[in-house]
Design a binder for these strands. Structure first.
Lengths: 245, 245
DNA sequence: CGAGCAGTTGATTTTTATCAAGTAGCGTGG
DNA sequence: CCACGCTACTTGATAAAAATCAACTGCTCG
């Protein structure tokens, strides 16, 4: 049983999905044009797992035996220092792959932000399929390069932007992670806590809170609830994000 | 004429190279086991260019028409903010590829740090070859994932490490970028200026200078010259880098 | 109803940036 | 060969940004 979800052609997160015969959940969600037969083969060798909010998919330092494909929910990827300082390096959503990096052990951790489901493959099997299926490899390669570009932008943010510029950038980037584009423009949903935002932007929760308050006071944004906000002056926010403020 | 350079098997930068018939310079330098025939085909469609120190290979915002392969020297990749703040996202060396990210325009700039040579391909031709040569694509994909892991480590550094921890990490990581491993252990060569180190680590030149002085005073390192230093206490430096200091 | 957690706000400290003088190395030209 | 000037680097004083410490608010869920 095949389900193809179609998004606007300019949308990177366009994906083909197939539903799992055993559990019923969507089993695979791959960006780009991947052959249905290949998707099926990949799906056949996958384990399908559900993760409660906060549960661990990958622990840094563990033997890297599996590759994951997120089929629903969202996942945070992060690294820790010995004393507990955390840097969240990214959030993953439906369709994203996890654990592709080569090496014996994982070099990052990953946890479900909200309840999530994922397919899990043995790395050896995954490698065999990758070799047989050039389309899939091309798609994944393409995506890795996208992620690399995103990582560079994040390095610019972490290394050179002020707290205000970081928050502004974050608020503008967030909606683009919404896979279904269901949220009306100008409306931003914050599925993560202040602590997660802080650990993603290299700030403290207090600074995040203060900057949001400042933006609210200046009328640039309006806080509908703790996790919902509306951008009232997008052009001002854009200027702030680019350091032109 | 084929030249294979062999490095220890645990070395990621192991590469196959072929020399250019016309200019004599090494034309292609690719990590991993890539078929010689494929290398030859790739080389045949390349332009071979030399770059003086400081000259621009890629300017952010320009149409992304080419892919580069560095064949000698070193290159800095960076992003700028409107007011001139710069974040260097990485240094590239012999064998590294540049400009693989999809999209109409380059999303970063690249300049030669020291005199460098590179092969340049039209993206369209490059894409065609990539499709024909699975080994090359696998190699590039593998490397992209390595870079992604490196980018995550750099995000941890930029977002959560102190100035001292950043410098310590930098000094420990630098030798691994030496493709030929010619430098004796404990000896670190700094081919870049303090300004470049600062822009790579998200600091100012003054802070870089002060931290180096501090490490020198404490006897952890010894400055042989401005661009040469010796690590006297590697285990102390490692502890500092990991935030265990 | 109240405990507990997430978030906000305020006071203070710390870190690093900024501003401002130097000093050292190095290539050029007298 | 040495003086000059340039640039990179270092060092010091001060300022700014964000972290830390601390108190308080408000919400959610037993």
């Amino acid at each position: 049983m095949l389900e193809i979800r179609t998004f606007p052609s300019n949308c990177f997160r366009r994906s083909s999905s197939i539903a799992c015969d055993t559990c019923g959940a969507r089993a695979l969600s791959v960006c780009g044009s991947v052959d249905d037969t290949d998707l099926g083969r990949l799906d056949a060798m996958a384990e399908h797992a559900s993760f409660a909010a906060g549960s661990v998919l990958i622990r840094e330092g563990d033997p890297a035996r599996h590759v994951f494909n997120i089929t629903s929910g969202s996942v945070r990827v992060y690294k820790l220092l010995a004393d507990g300082r955390r840097q969240i390096t990214g959030f993953l959503f439906t369709g994203d792959f996890l654990g592709l990096a080569t090496g014996d052990t994982y070099v990052f951790s990953a946890e479900a932000v909200e309840p999530a489901t994922a397919c899990r493959f043995r790395k050896t099997e995954y490698r065999a399929l990758i070799r047989d299926c050039p389309t899939l490899e091309a798609t994944l390669f393409d995506r890795a390069n996208h992620e690399l570009a995103a990582a560079q932008s994040q390095m610019l943010l972490l290394g050179r932007k002020t707290a205000l510029e970081r928050i502004a950038t974050f608020l503008l980037d967030l909606p683009s992670h919404d896979p279904a584009r269901t949220i009306p423009p100008g409306h931003v949903h914050l599925p993560m806590t202040r602590a997660e935002i802080a650990d993603y932007l290299g700030l403290t929760i207090e600074t995040v809170s203060r900057v949001l308050t400042r933006l609210k006071t200046q009328g640039v944004i309006r806080l509908v609830s703790l996790s919902e906000l509306r951008v009232e002056q997008p052009e001002v926010l854009r200027a702030l994000a680019d350091g032109v403020g």
